[in-house]
Each structure stands twice: as structure tokens, then as C-alpha cells.
């Protein structure tokens, strides 16, 4: 039953139609979540007693950092699906996640650095989290570079799938080694980014924003995947009927 659904989802016309119907709903939900999260985060949540209002960067920074890992996990997962079952849609999801994943990682890095300026007094500190985020950005850029370097896109997708799997094995190792390195060099890291106890009025907007980011990711991936699919299958029957139906 589940396998049948996966195979059905793997068929390009079905995926195209389904994603087209889903997109308006996703956009609406995403908009509502962003509006609620921003209102809660910028207006309702009280200022932090230590960091004042600068802590409000958390609502941009922390979900972006979460997403940077989450997207990589999705990429590795669809990479495995693409390699094992040769599902075309999995390939397309994998490669179209890379750009938006890099965007999230970049955003987490820059906002972390902006946040660091009032907190640490400098724009950049070789803090464990920022450093592993930077390395994660390089992993994303490597995937994008490899994909664009290989001309045959079917081949490129498989290469990227292998690379994503290698990367996902390495991420915990890199993360652990960087953590280890930073504790040796500057004592225990400043744990400003995660507090054990956080006011619920601060926490709820954070969770709302995290969900909003997830929906945003889904929207961007679907938009890009649909474009990719249309172009790859431009000579197929279903694209032709799709365009004749529109009465072009």
C-alpha cells in the first residue's frame, strides 16, 4: 500500500498534478504561520532580561539553523531512495533541495554573526556552532558544484545522491570534532543560543516560525521541482496534453 503510493508519487504527471493542487494550501498555511510567528515573536514576547530586544533575532536564526540540518537529512533520504529504487522524483527533490538548504545555512550564519556583534562584541567568533554551520555550507556548495559540473543530469543526480549519503555520515563526525576543538581552545562554549528554560511566550513563536520555515521549504522545493520536471519531460506526452488543455 505504502509502496504503491510511493511508486505513484514517483510518476511525474501524478506528482505534477498533486503538487499543483497542494501549493495554494501550503502557501496559505505558510503565510498564516509566518504572520502568527512574527507577531508573537516581535510584539507579544517580552524582551530578554539579559539580551534585551536583540534576542528577537532568535526567530530568524534558530529555525534557519534547524532547517539547514533538516534539509540535508531530507536530501540524504531522497538520495537513498534515488539510488535504491531509481525514483526520478527523489532525484529531483534531492537536487532542488540543495539551493534552499544552502540559503537556510547562509541565513543562519549571517544572522548568527549579526547576533554575535552585540553579544560578543565582534562579528565572528570561532564558536563551535557557527564553525560547523560554516562547514555545512561548504557541504551544500560542494553538492551544487558537483551537480552543475556534470552535464548528463541523470548521472549528475546519482553522483549527488552518493555525495549526500557520504556527507550525512560525515556530518556527526564533523560536528563532534568541531565541538571538541572549540572546547579545547576557549573553554566551554558560550551557551547563549540555547537556554534550558525559556519563557513560553518566547518559545511558542519560535515553534511557529520553525513550522513556517518547513512550509516555506516545501513550497520552494515544489516550485523548483515542478520546473525541473517540466523541462526534463518536455518531449513527453503528458506535458504536451497539459499544454494543449490550457488552450495555448
Amino acid at each position: 500500500m505504502i509502496m504503491r503510493f510511493i511508486y505513484q508519487l514517483g510518476s511525474p504527471p501524478y506528482f505534477y498534478a498533486l503538487s499543483g493542487r497542494l501549493l495554494p494550501w501550503l502557501s496559505g498555511l505558510c503565510f498564516i504561520l509566518f504572520a502568527a510567528g512574527l507577531y508573537g515573536g516581535l510584539v507579544l514576547a517580552p524582551a530578554d532580561y539579559q539580551q534585551g530586544d536583540s534576542f528577537r533575532i532568535i526567530y530568524i536564526h534558530v529555525p534557519a539553523a534547524w532547517m539547514s540540518l533538516f534539509v540535508y537529512m531530507i536530501m540524504a533520504f531522497s538520495g537513498a531512495m534515488a539510488l535504491i529504487w531509481r525514483i526520478k522524483i527523489a532525484e529531483i527533490i534531492l537536487i532542488n533541495s540543495a539551493h534552499i538548504g544552502a540559503v537556510f545555512t547562509f541565513l543562519a550564519l549571517v544572522t548568527g554573526s549579526i547576533w554575535g556583534k552585540p553579544m560578543w562584541g565582534t562579528w565572528w567568533v570561532w564558536d563551535a556552532r557557527l564553525t560547523s554551520e560554516l562547514l555545512l555550507l561548504f557541504l551544500y556548495l560542494g553538492i551544487i558544484a558537483l551537480y552543475s559540473a556534470i552535464d548528463d543530469k541523470r548521472k549528475a543526480a546519482r553522483a549527488v545522491a552518493i555525495l549526500a549519503l557520504v556527507g550525512v555520515v560525515n556530518i556527526p563526525i564533523i560536528h563532534y570534532s568541531v565541538e571538541w576543538w572549540s572546547t579545547l581552545h576557549q573553554g566551554p562554549t558560550v551557551t547563549k543560543f540555547d537556554k534550558p528554560s525559556i519563557d513560553t511566550r518566547m518559545l511558542i513563536p519560535l515553534l511557529l516560525m520553525a513550522f513556517a520555515y518547513k512550509f516555506l521549504y516545501a513550497i520552494v522545493v515544489l516550485l523548483r521541482a515542478r520546473n525541473d520536471l517540466l523541462w526534463r519531460e518536455r518531449r513527453s506526452q503528458w506535458v504536451a496534453t497539459l499544454f494543449s488543455k490550457e488552450g495555448a
Binding site: 562547514l135 561548504f138 557541504l139 556548495l141 560542494g142 558544484a145 558537483l146 559540473a149 555525495l163 557520504v166 556527507g167 560525515n170 563526525i173 564533523i174 563532534y176 570534532s177 568541531v178 571538541w180 576543538w181
Partner: peptide, 17 residues
């Protein structure tokens, strides 16, 4: 160039330890 971009981040743990 692509090779160095792929491989160097994966070398980081070795360098650190």
C-alpha cells in the same frame, strides 16, 4: 576545483584530531 570543494570539508575531523 570541484574535487577540492568536495573533499576538504570532509578532511576537517582528521585535521582537528
Amino acid at each position: 576545483v570541484v574535487l577540492s570543494l568536495l573533499v576538504l570539508p570532509l578532511y576537517v575531523p582528521v585535521l582537528i584530531f
